[in-house]
Write a protein that binds this DNA or RNA. Sequence first.
DNA 1: GCTAGAAATTGATCTCGATCAAATCTTCGA
DNA 2: TCGAAGATTTGATCGAGATCAATTTCTAGC
Lengths: 242, 242
Amino acid sequence: MNHRQDVHTSEVPVLCVACEARLRGVCGALDADQLMALSKTSTKKRLETGAELVGDAEIIDGYANILSGVVKLIKGLPDGREQIVGLQFAPDFLGRPFQAESAVSAQAATNVVLCSFPKRTLEALIKQSPQLEHSLLKQALRELDEARDWMLTLGRKNALERVASYLLLIANYIDPALQPQSEVIAFDLPMSRLEIADFLGLTIETVSRQLTKLRVDGVIQVRQSRHIVVNNPARLKTFSGC
Amino acid sequence: MNHRQDVHTSEVPVLCVACEARLRGVCGALDADQLMALSKTSTKKRLETGAELVGDAEIIDGYANILSGVVKLIKGLPDGREQIVGLQFAPDFLGRPFQAESAVSAQAATNVVLCSFPKRTLEALIKQSPQLEHSLLKQALRELDEARDWMLTLGRKNALERVASYLLLIANYIDPALQPQSEVIAFDLPMSRLEIADFLGLTIETVSRQLTKLRVDGVIQVRQSRHIVVNNPARLKTFSGC
DNA sequence: GCTAGAAATTGATCTCGATCAAATCTTCGA
DNA sequence: TCGAAGATTTGATCGAGATCAATTTCTAGC
């Protein structure tokens, strides 16, 4: 990916060359000097699928911007049950400001490339820059909206509606301009059936059965497990309960 | 309630006399002049149980600090299914900055007293005061943590665990110092069985049965539906799945 | 391409919570 | 205090999704 034509990147070449970032997110709020300072301490990291992002050597005690890939936020119960409580895509900001440790753990759902910042550097910048805090607030409010949307899905939708909602969520990330009356849309799922189940509060068998149901109904096609073709986005939406 | 002895209120008498607020929340971030300005446009409102906080004459297009009572945030599906996606207690800040309208509706779960601010006034203050934005960010992050906790409950806990978690949530609000090894704790539920069910993603019958189960097990006592005595908080916690 | 191991699907059965129904409790105005 | 309406509890039954088990499909290494 090359985003040097981008407005932001053209203003802040040092960090962007380092990060290859689109910087729609948090970094966009910084001025050139601040970005320059940040770029000196930031490091680019490549994580394999399944890598833990906190608690080990990856981005301990720090923050990061996702450059590519999907990160899942997980909460677990003592007996091993797990729930994915959030998905983060590029160019989301990652990390929990103003708190020693987050109550959630983060893990790479796909291969992930991110730009990591030391906790102190970024927190110092936050104090300097109200703009940066504003960006963080906007992202936090967006994540809050997403979490509450998902609470409705987890609390009140049946299995078929959950799976349909999930496909629409991913489709919408792949193509944010997706309209109900859109044409066919195709994409690769960034998660395994187990991860989807942990996101939907279901089991893998139930996820599989609902996908089969949608496939038999002609709403979607499934190729090699991960590749999905949505034949009829409008009809998929009617299955989602919304 | 009279909080004039409180540190914050003694610094900012005008708004506090008007609001009787403890101001642990957002307003605490403002200096005396800003609070004075805010107090001139703020109004104190008393809402009956069930009153809608948005979309009608209550706090249209505005923000508010809850002074007493409990507000529920609700999301619904077209077919009438509802999920409570958040509970807000005094002195929480209420309202969704930087967005024309929130995707959730808010309703008084109990009688509520709140201090309401016009949208423009508060947004102007936010621009002036990084401190205020910082407070908003802190509350947004706290609400995000709470929402994600609840996603785990909705996605992965069974009915008994959900009800136990709910009782602990309320008990913890009533007495934030509550420790696992605490003594007996008693409180009145601020919500009906239907509201509890809508919060837990269950039906009223299931909520009732789980309460009966906890009562028969001697973990709690229930008096006149709403009054709960937790005989054994530690044991209740073991029922909560955490 | 071939093969082993992992991932996903499909099948059979069971269980928890939903649903429908009835009884009891609580509240509140007359 | 009485009585009616609403809220809650309890009972009986049903069904969606979990669980356990067996195939089938996919993937990665050779």
